[in-house]
């Protein structure tokens, strides 16, 4: 059911006065989690920007109860909490809120384990495409060609296709979302909360500091990522793949906004804009993702077999 803004309560969902940078996509995203799931949530947060955003004891700048936990095992801690709640007969949403490092790299093992066990949690990967908390180092989810402090001349490897890897885990629900499309994200969160088992939502989260853009543009760049086909929005629910309505029209490359529009707003893509070979590599990375989509649409769960 489409979300109408006017219907959302007037309450304060976020927690102002936190330690996030101006224009931070993570605090945006956390507000949407609150809008979607209300107060029936416990967050598990591994090391990352969100550990810092909370600010200083005895206050916390994230408007949820939180178990902060070591970098590598957020999904396991969430599984433990969920097991405890189940034993007590409580029906809370245990939500992991982790960055791309905590999900795709150092935290991958524990997340993959929780997915395989089908632990009843919602796992949100807040993908800002580099290790921002430590100062913009490349991650497994940094796009091809992008500058980071450890890929001075642009990343030479392609972005790990994590949402598809999670689909291959055959969990009940996988979705991509973007802070540029809050209603879509909220809808997906609500759906996830209604499903039992492991739910994975990959949230695209442009970082003004790490991507080198004006902090006023966070939402705009997130939208451009969708409109250029860089970050397609989709859902995979019980074996059925579906491109989300916001991305539907961008299946056709002709209808997409020009990639350069997305790239030129971000300082990190200078190496790509200067070098046609790198641009080609980035385009291949995007094309590969759409081939995944095509295959999943065509074969559904059979694509995995």
């Amino acid at each position: 059911m489409p979300i109408r803004l006017a219907d959302l309560p007037r309450r304060r969902y976020g927690m102002p006065g936190n330690a996030a940078c101006p224009g931070c996509p993570e605090t945006m995203g956390l507000r949407y989690v609150k809008m979607a799931l209300g107060d029936n949530v416990v967050l598990v947060i591994p090391a990352g920007c969100s550990s810092v955003i909370q600010g200083i004891v005895p206050k916390s700048g994230i408007n949820f109860p939180v178990l902060n936990i070591v970098f590598a095992s957020a999904a396991s801690s969430a599984a433990g909490m969920e097991a405890a709640f189940e034993m007590m007969g409580k029906n809370y949403n245990v939500v992991v809120w982790a960055g791309d490092g905590g999900t795709a790299d150092i935290g991958f093992q524990s997340m993959s384990g929780a997915a395989e066990r089908n632990d009843n949690i919602i796992y949100i990967c807040v993908d800002n495409e580099a290790y921002m908390n430590t100062g913009i180092q490349r991650s497994g989810l940094t796009p091809y060609g992008a500058w980071t402090t450890t890929t001075y001349a642009g990343k030479t490897e392609k972005k790990k296709p994590l949402p598809f890897i999670m689909i291959a885990h055959n969990v009940p629900y996988v979705a991509t979302a973007s802070v540029g499309y809050p209603q879509d994200f909220i809808e997906k969160l609500r759906k996830a909360a209604s499903i039992k088992g492991f739910k994975y939502i990959h949230l695209h989260a442009p970082c003004p500091i790490g991507w080198r853009f004006d902090p006023g543009l966070t939402a705009k760049i997130a939208q451009l990522a969708v409109q250029t086909g860089v970050f397609p929005l989709f859902e995979y629910e019980n074996g059925k793949f579906r491109l989300s309505s916001y991305s539907g029209m961008y299946r056709n490359p002709q209808k997409r906004a020009p990639l350069a529009e997305y790239l030129k707003l971000q300082g990190r893509f200078q190496p790509v804009l200067k070098d046609p070979e790198k641009l080609k590599g980035l385009q291949e990375e995007i094309d590969a993702m759409w081939r995944w989509i095509e295959m999943l649409e065509k074969y559904g769960p059979q694509a995995l077999k």
Binding site: G17, I56, V57, K59, S60, G61
Partner: peptide, 16 residues
Amino acid sequence: PISYPAEGSSGKTGLW
């Protein structure tokens, strides 16, 4: 080592 959600965990950030 616990906290509670509250406004201003990093002070009056309007000053930023």
